[in-house]
Design a protein around this nucleic acid. Structure first.
Length: 812
DNA sequence: AGCCCTGTCCTTTTT
DNA sequence: GGACAGGGCT
């Protein structure tokens, strides 16, 4: 009998107790309530999109706590993203009142495991202050190893190796356990050796990568049953969100932790498994009942989010997948608007159309029925597709926010700043040292770094003989012979090597002086760090290192943003008491919300949109090779395709009232124009729930028209304007058949660099008449006020109170 | 050492 | 259209 059970006193039946005093249970449907109240033993909650999954999880957590079943430190609640964890915490607090959010073990797999590993680091051969490497560090480290092994870095990239290592770690494979067959995925069979060398380097650097956070803990639990038992006692209740996305490593970790009481509740939806490429095994959820015998299964099928048409479209689409657990989502909502599917000429038109739709949506709001920018989301398959929309929104001055865009803490300038701080904390942080030694430029580039590495690699008297011995050439690590106090062969840190080299004359005088200056700076900052606050320290370092100055002198358009990012960083640091506290939490947990007034269109990848919802959702880029991604199909065949389809399902089910899918006939891929075919997913949508429209037909009202082969700065929005070059792509032909567009399209617009030129020839000249509404790439919409020979005077709507702000010269 | 030019290969998706 | 590497030049 487990400890948790033995502590259980006799109680009233759960249902009786709950209905007596549990306001938070009110409004749950019977299935939801069943899921919330099943507190003992394994529980699998199959929760379709929009069925109140998060509500069930948070209510269940609240129920556990408020019935006194568990204390707030006795529940382990695991999510996949920090965002989900934060939301859960907030919602529990909302249910139970302030203070209830203080659940100690609520976080992502990685952050909770890191939390554990910090306590038992020594059992994995680490110090508890270990650093967590992100992809960037990982690749830099691998580059060094690959170079040291004499492998051609051109042919076998560090990035590919990092991918292989991640893959193995996702499957919980240590170097020794990697199947022989896998060795040849990279480097002519040397992959495993590199992997092993990498692991040794990590240990010496006192570092972990993401995968290690889980693997080290799993390993510790397996080797120390007593410790595991302690965790079983400490954490009798476990809950997992998005179970369909767990990989082998996470599964093993979880199973070890759950095996004490078996009070494990997992929530997931096999139709929303979209992380197969990250090693997620849908199998984990399909197998749950076998893995945990006696598991109770609850299905949530009533959808509270989307209208009938949206739900029907999504369900029919996902029906094309095989091997599903299967469920039938239903709603009591109205059928509502049908899903719109639109064929457009190219990505630019698509962005324009969506921008217009959003403006229209917002304008159509009334005081009674508010319609805001934040009601709208644009969800794309890959991050590069966002740029077109960002450009468009900037131009139209539509406020927007990128969800999960380039992570704040992965930005170069932020990482540089961190490297400085890490270096001040510990001079032995070689990765940090390397990152900033020549950033800003100090004349300490490759040549110097090479000499530093050589010096650091010398067998030199150690300053820490307690460390294992590491030989870079053979990659071998040996333990220090017991009882023998000797000079160790441990490497010096780069900083230590630098201190040595500035004394001698190996380095040219210039480099020596620069290096000495750098080391002096470090020493000074380290001394100061004891007197000033960490926030002040950051400011001093950024200033005195010349980093801020470097950015100020940088003429590139991104420099300004980068400076602002640094300001945000300094602000974020203020939320922590000490530098150590800040650095410890930063890599995994913190997520800075970009400032803004909150009324912003959301721009996101489909992956990052999981778990979110909006009244109006745009799904652009539904073209073969883009979505479904060609690469997914090439790499994983039918499995890959089905995952893409689940992604489409996730996309559609984000919409509450209106879903607008679009595909272009032409798209720029790698900067080259390509004609593309509509996605097969378009064909798979049920006709009855879909409106197919062409917004682009020549001469139709609302046509964009007016874009000719000769190129143009303007396009007319006047009905009937525009002409065709007669160019037809195969993609368009197919789109035309389906959608019933009646005219061919013109070529993609060719935009010249000069903002003031109008280069237009041909029949569309007629549109330049007083009163015609035009569009300009820089200034947005406007109306022609005067036409005088080659000059147009235009009043723009956005660029300053409808005044005449510019005149335009039409090129000959 | 560092800048600028050119050519090559790309880009899914995230902790 | 962009990141990055190699070569040639200052």
């Amino acid at each position: 009998m487990s400890l948790a059970e033995s502590m259980d006193e006799p109680r009233l039946p759960i249902s009786a107790r709950a209905s007596a005093a549990a306001p938070y249970l009110q409004g749950l449907n019977p299935e939801q309530r069943a899921a919330v109240e099943a507190l003992d033993g394994p529980v699998l909650v199959l929760a379709g999109a929009g069925t109140g999954k998060t509500r069930v999880l948070t209510t269940r957590l609240a129920h556990l706590l408020s019935t006194g079943r568990a204390k707030s430190w006795q529940v382990l609640a695991v999510t996949f993203t920090n965002k989900a964890a934060r939301e859960m915490r907030e919602r529990v607090e909302h249910l139970m009142g302030p203070g209830a959010g203080g659940i100690q073990w609520l976080g992502t797999f990685h952050s909770t495991s890191a939390q554990m590993l910090r306590r038992h680091a020594e059992l994995a051969g680490l110090k508890s202050s270990f650093t967590i490497l992100d992809t960037d560090d990982q690749i830099r480290l691998l580059k060094q190893i690959i170079e040291a092994e004499g492998i051609d870095e051109k042919r076998w990239t560090a990035r590919a190796m990092a991918g292989a290592i991640d893959g193995w770690k996702n499957r919980a494979l240590t170097p020794a356990r990697v199947p022989k067959g896998d060795a040849h995925v990279w480097g002519d069979g040397r992959a495993i050796a590199v992997y092993a060398a990498y692991q040794e380097r990590l240990k010496i650097l006192n570092a972990c990568d993401f995968g290690d956070l889980l693997l080290h803990m799993t390993d510790i639990f397996q080797k120390h049953p007593d410790l595991l038992a302690e965790y079983h006692r400490k954490l009798p209740y476990i809950m997992v969100d998005e179970y369909q996305d767990t990989n082998v490593a996470q599964y093993l970790w979880l199973r070890l932790l759950a095996q004490g009481t078996n009070n494990l509740c997992v929530v997931g939806d096999d139709d929303q498994s979209i992380y197969g490429w990250r090693g997620a095994e849908v199998d984990n959820i399909l197998r749950f009942e076998r893995d945990f015998p006696g598991a109770k299964v609850v299905r949530l099928e009533r959808n509270y989010r989307s209208t009938g048409n949206i739900l029907a479209a999504a369900s029919k689409l996902i029906d094309h997948n095989t091997g599903r657990l299967g469920k039938t989502l239903w709603t009591q909502d109205e059928p509502g608007e049908r899903v719109k599917v639109r064929g457009v000429w190219d990505g630019e038109v698509e962005a324009r159309l969506i921008g217009d739709d959003i403006e229209q949506w917002v304008q159509s709001g009334t005081p009674a029925l508010k319609r805001t920018h934040s009601d709208c989301a644009v969800l794309v398959r890959a991050a590069w597709q966002m740029r077109a929309f960002e450009e468009r929104f900037l131009m139209l001055r539509i406020p927007y926010k990128v969800i999960g865009g380039p992570r704040f803490f992965e930005r170069a300038e932020v990482r540089d700043a961190h490297a400085y701080l890490r270096l001040i904390r510990s001079e032995e942080d070689d990765l940090a040292f390397e990152r900033v030694i020549n950033q800003p430029k100090r004349g300490l580039a490759e040549a110097t770094l090479k000499k530093l590495h050589a010096e650091a690699g010398q067998r030199t008297p150690a300053f820490n003989t307690a460390e294992p011995l590491f030989d870079l050439l053979t990659g071998e690590v040996s333990d220090i012979p017991e009882g023998e106090i000797t000079a160790s062969t441990r490497f010096r840190s780069l900083a230590a090597a630098a201190r040595h080299l500035v004394q001698g004359d190996t380095l040219p005088l210039k480099a020596r002086t620069a290096l000495r200056g750098f080391l002096n700076d470090l020493d000074r900052w380290r001394a100061q760090s004891r007197q000033v606050t960490h926030v002040e320290l950051a400011e001093i370092v950024l200033d005195e290192s010349g980093y801020t100055e470097m950015l100020r002198n940088d003429k590139s358009p991104t420099a300004q943003t980068r400076l602002e990012n640094l300001k945000e960083l300094v602000q974020a640091m203020g939320q922590f008491d000490t530098l150590a506290a800040y650095l410890e939490h930063v890599e995994l947990v913190l997520d800075i919300e970009a400032g803004g007034d909150g009324d912003e269109v959301h721009l996101s990848t489909l992956h990052a949109a999981k778990g979110l919802e909006w009244p109006l959702v745009f799904l652009p880029g539904w073209e073969e090779t883009v979505f479904p991604s060609q690469r997914a199909i090439d790499e994983s065949g039918v499995k890959g395709l089905e995952e893409e389809r689940r992604l489409a399902y996730v996309g559609i089910t984000r919409g509450r009232e209106s879903v607008r899918i679009s595909f272009a006939a032409n798209r720029q891929i790698y900067g080259r124009w390509q004609s593309v075919l509509p996605s097969r997913f378009v064909d798979e949508l049920p006709e009855a729930n879909v409106d197919a429209i062409s917004e682009t037909g020549y001469g139709r009202p609302g046509s964009f028209g007016g874009v000719g082969e000769s190129g143009s700065r303007f396009e007319s929005l006047a009905p009937g304007a525009g002409f065709s070059s007669g160019y037809e792509s195969p993609g368009w032909k197919r789109a035309q058949d389906r959608i019933g567009g009646d005219r061919p399209f013109s070529r993609p617009p060719i935009i010249d660099g000069e903002a003031r030129l109008v280069t237009r020839t041909g029949p569309t000249d007629a549109v330049f008449a007083v009163g015609v509404r035009v569009f300009h790439d820089k200034f947005g919409y406007g109306r022609i006020r005067a036409v005088e020979g080659n000059k147009l005077t235009v009043a723009f709507e956005k660029a300053g109170e409808k005044k005449v702000i510019d005149s335009f010269v039409k090129a000959a």
